[in-house]
């Protein structure tokens, strides 16, 4: 029988989730203590709760939500060339699906015939 509460031995060290949880609980506790000593002027239903958009009044509540298509715009734009290739490959055409499979099959046949043996 092993000690299941003990350390999780990895190839180069060890890891103990329970200690991690314990430490993070302490950190949360400290954070809570700091937070609870803060100002308590926040009031619901006043203009404090409205989103702040550089001084402009938001058009509507829905308008303040950043939609999924706009997130990571910068990342995708920076890798434009890479994504262009990927989009070109993903044609959605069933002929291409079979074509890729057969192509990889042919390549691997060649590789195994050349270097497959022990």
């Amino acid at each position: 029988m092993m000690n299941f509460l003990g350390n999780f031995i990895t190839p180069a060290g060890m890891w103990n989730p329970l200690i991690w949880v314990f430490v993070s609980l302490i950190i949360f506790l400290i954070a809570y203590l700091i937070w609870s000593r803060g100002e308590s002027r926040y009031k619901k239903g006043t203009e404090q709760t409205l989103p702040f958009l550089s001084g402009y009044a938001p058009e509507s509540a829905e308008g303040t939500h950043v939609r999924a298509g706009n997130i990571y715009w910068g990342f995708v734009t920076a890798l434009k060339g890479y994504y262009k290739v990927l989009r070109k490959i993903h044609t959605g055409n069933v002929n291409d699906y079979v074509g890729w499979y057969v192509g990889i099959l042919a390549i691997m046949l060649l590789i195994y015939l050349l270097w497959g043996g022990a």
Binding site: R87, H90, T91, G92, N93, V94, N95
Partner: peptide
Amino acid sequence: DSRKIRRLRE
């Protein structure tokens, strides 16, 4: 036509 039946792609 398989070229037109690709509403799922990317």
